[in-house]
C-alpha cells in the first residue's frame, strides 16, 4: 500500500457555461518518503488536485468523485474534524504566495506553534521552543528574535522558509508543495530547493511538488507526472522522462523551454519549438485525445478515441496512440 493512492479522481465545477472537468480520471500513487513532481501548464488541474487531497476544495461548486486514500483511508469520506487532525499533522502544505498564506496579525512563532499545540497538545512554552528550533532548521538567522516578528517583517525568501517551518513542524508523512518557489528569485529559489531536499532526507516526508518549471522538476523530484487538460498524459522517473519523453506534449514542452547555454555559439538566433494553438476549453466535452488539436503526430484516430494510459517501458506510462513502446515492456 502506497502512502497516498489517488484513484480515478474526478473534479468538476459547475460554471455558467457548463461543467468544467478540471480533473478527469486521475490516478497515481506516492510512496512514503518519495518526491513526486506534478507538472503541467495553467489550468491542467494540478493545483485543484493538491487542494482536493488537503480537503480544501469547497463543494459545491466543486464536485469530487473517485478515491483519495491516505494510509488506506479514503479522505473523500473523511469528516471535517478528521481532516483537521490530518492537515498540518500528517499532511503538511506549502503554497506559492507566502504573504497571503501567513496570517498578518500573528507572529511567526505563534503560527508555527499553532499546529504543534493543536496536534501534539504542547504547552505554550514548548510550542515556542519548537518554533525556534524549526526556524533554526530552515535556516532563518537569529531565530530567537524572529520568532516574535510578524510576517511583514520578513523578506519573501524568509517568509517561504517560515511556511516550510510551519508545514514541517509536526513531521508530516506527506508534504504538498504547490509552486513553492515560483514567487521567489532564482538565488532564493536555489536556497529553498536545497532546504526542502535537505529536510526531506532529515524528516523523511514524502513530497508532492506541483510546478510548471521543468528545471525545478529535474533538480528536485524522483518521479514525474505530466498533466494536460485534467488528465495524466505521462508518468516516469525523472531520468526517463527527460531522456526519452514519450508523449508528444511532454516532448513539446521540453523543446519549448529555453535552456541556458543552448543558444550560445549559434550564428543566427535559434527558434524555440512552439506548441501551436492552446489548451482546450474544459467546459466543453472532449472527444478523443485532449492534445490532438495541437499534436504534430495526430491522426484521424486521435480525434475519435481517447488513448488509454499504457506502460510503454518499465515504469513509464504514456497516454498516446503513437508513443513508441519498448519491446520488453508488458
Amino acid at each position: 500500500m502506497a502512502l497516498l493512492e489517488v484513484r480515478d479522481l474526478q473534479i468538476h465545477f459547475r460554471t455558467a457555461t457548463g461543467v468544467n472537468r478540471a480533473v478527469d480520471g486521475l490516478s497515481f500513487d506516492i510512496e512514503a518518503g518519495e518526491a513526486l513532481a506534478v507538472v503541467g501548464e495553467s489550468g491542467c488541474g494540478k493545483s485543484v488536485t493538491s487542494m482536493s487531497i488537503l480537503g480544501l476544495l469547497p463543494t459545491p461548486p466543486g464536485k469530487i468523485a473517485g478515491q483519495i486514500r491516505f494510509r488506506g483511508q479514503n479522505l473523500l469520506n473523511a469528516s471535517e474534524s478528521r481532516m483537521r487532525k490530518l492537515r498540518g499533522a500528517e499532511i503538511g502544505m506549502i503554497f506559492q504566495e507566502p504573504m497571503t498564506s501567513l496570517n498578518p496579525v500573528f507572529t511567526i512563532g505563534q503560527q508555527i506553534g499553532e499546529s504543534v499545540r493543536l496536534h501534539e497538545k504542547a504547552s505554550r512554552a514548548e510550542a515556542r521552543d519548537r518554533a525556534i528550533e524549526m526556524l533554526r532548521l530552515v535556516g532563518i538567522p537569529s531565530p530567537e528574535r524572529r520568532v516574535d516578528e510578524y510576517p511583514h517583517q520578513l523578506s519573501g525568501g524568509m517568509r517561504q522558509r517560515a511556511m516550510i517551518a510551519i508545514a514541517l513542524a509536526c513531521n508530516p508523512a506527506l508534504l504538498v508543495a504547490d509552486e513553492p518557489t515560483t514567487a521567489l528569485d532564482v538565488t532564493i529559489q536555489a536556497q529553498i530547493l536545497d532546504l526542502m531536499q535537505d529536510l526531506r532526507s532529515k524528516v523523511g516526508s514524502a513530497v508532492m511538488l506541483i510546478t510548471h518549471d521543468l528545471g525545478v522538476v529535474a533538480e528536485f523530484a524522483e518521479r514525474v507526472l505530466v498533466m494536460y487538460a485534467g488528465r495524466k498524459v505521462e508518468e516516469a522517473t525523472v531520468r526517463d522522462l527527460f531522456r526519452t519523453p514519450r508523449h508528444p506534449y511532454t516532448q513539446g514542452l521540453l523543446k519549448a523551454v529555453p535552456r541556458l547555454g543552448s543558444s550560445l555559439g549559434a550564428e543566427t538566433s535559434v527558434r524555440l519549438a512552439e506548441i501551436p494553438g492552446r489548451v482546450p476549453d474544459l467546459s466543453k466535452p472532449l472527444r478523443g485525445c485532449a492534445f490532438a488539436d495541437r499534436c504534430p503526430r495526430a491522426q484521424e484516430v486521435c480525434h475519435r478515441i481517447d488513448p488509454a494510459l499504457e506502460t510503454k517501458a518499465a515504469g513509464h506510462l504514456a497516454a498516446c496512440h503513437f508513443a513508441p513502446r519498448e519491446v520488453s515492456a508488458a
Partner: peptide
C-alpha cells in the same frame, strides 16, 4: 542558481547565502 531541465546535469552550484 538557475535550475536546469536536465536531471543528469552535473554541476557544482554556488548557492548564495542571505538576502
Amino acid at each position: 542558481a538557475v535550475p536546469l531541465p536536465d536531471p543528469e546535469a552535473d554541476r557544482d552550484r554556488a548557492v548564495l547565502t542571505g538576502d
